[in-house]
Structures are given as C-alpha cells and as structure tokens.
Design a protein around this nucleic acid. Structure first.
Lengths: 229, 229
DNA sequence: TGAGCAAATATTGTATACGATTTTGCTTGG
DNA sequence: CCAAGCAAAATCGTATACAATATTTGCTCA
C-alpha cells in the first residue's frame, strides 16, 4: 500500500467510477484481470469495497466474474457486440428526439463545451480521452431527455460499447465521428426532433459499420497472431 | 435462526431469486424494509451474502438502499412508473416482432403451457402467482428474441412494473389481460411479426391505461387513509 | 403534560481472518 | 529431456468482529 491513491470518498461507487473511466479511456482493456488485492491496494481500500465495486460493474456488463478465478474486464463476443448496438438503435434515436424537444439554451451551451473538449482532446492526440468524451456525449443527450431509466440503460450500453470498440474497431483513424456529433448538436439547437432522431439513427449505423464483427477473436488465434505477427 | 429455510445453493443469486419472486407475487410490497439480519436468518446465510443480494437488486431498481438506514423495497414515483412503461414501449414491441420471426413450435408449446398456468392460477384465485406469471410471459418473449442484452433490460423493467402495479393499479379485477397474451401467442404461432409488434404495443398501452398515475401516494396520506378507512 | 435532550439500542459499514479452490512450480519417474 | 503428479503459493468466498451511524426510549425540565 505504498503508493496508494487517496480516494476522496472511500466508497465502492468511487472505485466503480475510476475503473469505468479507465475502461472508457482504453487504459484498461478487455480481458485484463482485476485482482481484488491489487485494486484494493491501488485505491487504498479493503477487498470488501473492491468486491462491491466489481460486482456492481459485473452487473453492468463491464466486468465478468468467474467463480474462484476472479474478475476480468469483460470481452464482449461478436454476438454481444451486435446486441449492444441493436439495443442502442432501439433506444437512442427516440431519446435524441426527446432531447431535441426539451433542450434549453443552457443545455446546448453545456454540450458545446463538451464537444469543444472532445475536439481539444483529439487535437492533443489524447485518443483515450477523446473516446471517453465521445461516449459521454451520448450519455449527456440521454440525460437531456429526462428519462432516468433509459438514461441508465444507455449509460451501460455506452460503457459496453467502449469494450466493443477496443476489440473490434477497424481503423485507428479516430477523427471520423466528430461531424456526427456536431450535426446532432445542431439539430438539438434548432429543437428539431425529426432531424435529431434521424441523425442519431444514422450515427449509430455508421459506428457499427466501422466495426469488424466478422469473426470472434478467440483467445488462441489472437495469441497465435500476436506471436506470429 | 430457528425456522431457517434451507437454501439449495447458499449464494446471493439464490436470494435475489427468492426475493424477486416475492416481489412479483406481491407478497413483499413497496417500502417494506429488508433488514440484513432478518433476511439472513430467513434464508440461513450470513449478512455478507444478503448484502450482495440486496446491492444486486438495488442495481436493478427493485430495492433502494439508504446509507446507514438499510434496504427497502423500492417505491417507484409516478414519474419513474411512467418511465418504466415508456422504456418498455421502446423495447418490447420490436422484441415481440423478433420473437415472432424466430419462434419455433417448441417455443410455442412452452408459451402455451405458460399461459395455461396463468389461467390456472387465476382460476384458483392465486392473484399473486397469476401476476408473476403474467410478467414472466413478457420476459419469455424477450428470451425468444435471442437478445440477451434487451432480455436483461426487459426483465428489469418487468420486475419494476410489479412494483408499479402494486402502487398504482386501479381495479382489483385482475382477469383482464388474459386475452392480450392469448392474442400475442397467436401471432407468434403464425410467425406474424407485424401483428406481434402491434399487439404488444397495444397491450402495453392498455396496461398503462389501467394505472392511476395522477398523484404520488405520499406516506402521510396513505397512512392516514389506512387508519381512517 | 409535552417538548427537548441524552443515553441506550439496534442496524448498517468496513476490515480482517479463515477456509476452499485454483494456479503454479517443482520434483520424480519414465 | 519430457510428462505427470504433488506440493506450495496465491486468490477468491464467506463468516465474523468491530466501528460508525441512525433510531428509539426514557428522563428531565419548563
């Protein structure tokens, strides 16, 4: 516990936040082991708290727990990856519509700042941070819709999408989807529900189309490839 | 721990199942306190396990945990009640469609048996059991759609709907929605996605229309009514 | 008699200890 | 030299003990 990071609020929720952020920024990758002792030492809390946090994340699909083996960052299969985006396709367009109906100038201002940070991170080459902000943009829109239940679902789906992107993203070229968010923001600014819904639908299709969901990266093959390549 | 109920698998998940079933059957009602010691004694497990279970249910919205005060069966507000059914309206019609596309004769057979049990429970006057089966019917349809992610969402929404029904259902007349399920099953049997989607949409609208979502049942008034009435 | 305060009680929050299971590395026999 | 089996280490699962916090109860005083 030498270099323990002090946690403002030594609660499980704080650790969930920290770990989730790390996943969003791709600093923690699918399959990585999350040892209870290790996590506990890093954050300076006991295993009890860590276990709470890990179980909570497991419930959200970000972590998978194998009995007597421990917790690992989840590795969504191709099928699961598809399901995540199919669920998003069901929820997010309608949610964007609702957001467009309700968005106030203050909301727009906040989203503009969000996008500016997105661009700044991209410009600074902080790909992880940009990715996190990009996902958060969708969550923020859900928040505008004032639907806590759907908001929570989307939050979970966005998190899992980070894992999917880590596993299945094709191009390293990350600066592609800026325009989509700009356009969405514009529709929200104009309080144009139809456009918002349609743009979100298209944006999600675009996202999926940039994934390689052909074959599941099973352990043996990816290992072999890693060693031979 | 005198009359402890032996649990086949002394795991948190088993307790979640038992408690969730009790909620579905309205044997445990919104607002009821779930003391860790008490639950632990009932099921013959330690508080550690009970806490896991309660936190898990809290994550699903069935239980609300107040720090240093304990866990209570959740009491969805009117707003939350609306949100639950709005989310269902977004997810379930499409899911019914997918189920209709995929349903095999074996699936239909299982659903028929399910509905028979629903009718039997109703005939036997076991309102709680009937209600549970009625909710489970929706979950089963989601299972047919072969979408684990959406399935999990719907499972959660159906559970929370049980709470909503406990709080806001108007008529005690419970035998109203049998026909809706019969009709849905028929659409699935005919592999008729359009009908299935439309029937599900209408069924959900019917359900909401039988709720009284005008005013939030605040504590003081309900207590006063209970004592004066 | 009722309100306010204080002690007592009960309940939850967290840490730690112990037992069970898995993994790993060594040893030994082929 | 390799494989199989065994032993030791590491890690997780659960229970329990202790600390922190909320609630209740009973007392005092106006």
């Amino acid at each position: 516990m030498s270099d323990a990071i002090p946690v403002t609020e030594a609660s499980a929720e704080a650790i969930v936040l920290r770990l989730t952020e790390a996943v969003h920024e791709h600093r923690v990758l699918p399959g990585m082991k999350l040892s209870e002792d290790e996590v506990g030492e890093v954050f300076g809390v006991s295993r009890t708290i860590v276990r709470q946090a890990l179980r909570s994340m497991a419930h959200g699909g970000l972590v998978s727990i194998e009995r007597n083996r421990g917790a690992f960052v989840a590795k969504p299969s191709v099928k699961e990856a598809r399901e995540v985006f199919e669920a998003r396709a069901l929820l997010e367009p309608q949610t964007a519509r609702a957001a467009a109906e309700r968005a106030t100038p203050a909301d727009i201002e906040a989203l503009e700042q969000h996008i500016r940070r997105e661009h700044a991170a991209l410009a600074a080459g902080e790909a992880g941070r940009a990715l996190k902000l990009s996902g958060l943009f969708h969550v923020e829109i859900a928040r505008l819709a004032d639907q806590k239940t759907i908001h929570a679902f989307i939050e979970q789906l966005v998190s899992r999408s980070s894992l999917v992107i880590a596993l299945y993203w094709q191009r390293r070229n990350a600066l592609c989807e800026s325009h989509a968010h700009d356009a969405l923001l514009d529709a929200l600014r104009r309080n144009d529900p139809d456009s918002a819904e349609e743009l979100m639908k298209g944006h999600l299709v675009d996202l999926v189309s940039q994934l390689n969901l052909r074959e599941t990266p099973d352990e043996s093959r990816s290992l072999r490839e890693a060693l031979l390549g």
